[in-house]
Write a protein that binds this DNA or RNA. Sequence first.
DNA 1: CCGCGTTATTCATACAAAAATATCACGCTT
DNA 2: AAGCGTGATATTTTTGTATGAATAACGCGG
Lengths: 124, 124
Amino acid sequence: MEKELRAVLSIRLFTEQKCFGPGIAELLHRVDEHHSLRAAAQSMEMAYSKAWAITKGAEKGLGVELLVSTAGGKGGGGATLTEEARQILAAYDRYCEKLRAYGDKLLKEEFAFYKQMKKNDPSD
Amino acid sequence: MEKELRAVLSIRLFTEQKCFGPGIAELLHRVDEHHSLRAAAQSMEMAYSKAWAITKGAEKGLGVELLVSTAGGKGGGGATLTEEARQILAAYDRYCEKLRAYGDKLLKEEFAFYKQMKKNDPSD
DNA sequence: CCGCGTTATTCATACAAAAATATCACGCTT
DNA sequence: AAGCGTGATATTTTTGTATGAATAACGCGG
């Protein structure tokens, strides 16, 4: 019976306010997929009002427009990502991936003693 | 007017359950300082009941005793860290420090374009 | 020209997480 | 033996956050 130790990183970007994290990142990915903010929110079981709020917050914090939206018309309208949104999203994804990769490697180094500690524990 | 972009990492350790994070880490540091769980919690404006709950949760998750406590007696009792707690705490601190250092370096690399993006933004 | 489905926005409510409170046991000290 | 300040624990209260409803504007399609 092995208790595997793992690290979970939550990675958020701030300017003068919280502006980008895993929530908005996944949301933007899904907007790109569904071409609609409402459909994106629904697909991840997030209330539309929250989806709208976090995109507004991110746009305000970053000082960058993230969505191009149209209301009415074919299909009722929709939303797509700006070029800036794509760049930021891609950078965030790379940043998270590299940081987690390093975190995994580092965990093995710094907590090598923990396995041993548990092995010598008679209560386990 | 410079909007400095920064990353905030929240680093938590899990086994089969959440067991160690910044809250318990700071709490343990303060127990070491105050020789009391109650005083430690108070010093960081944390409810004692929460302090007790997170130490129990950490002990259960890690499978390791973290505190040696006595109730009653001189000063009413107190709590000190076990040797295992010291080791884990030290490892967690080193882990966080190295990860954040790498995160800072990586942020400059991956988000270099962002500064430029903002410079070219006429709305700013 | 009316209906449909979207974006945009606010707001009251429900739910979950955190904090405060209450209670008891403990064992020195006086 | 009573009091003090602690640890231990359950219960109640408060706070924060997410949700879903309500409303309006928009513009294509039938």
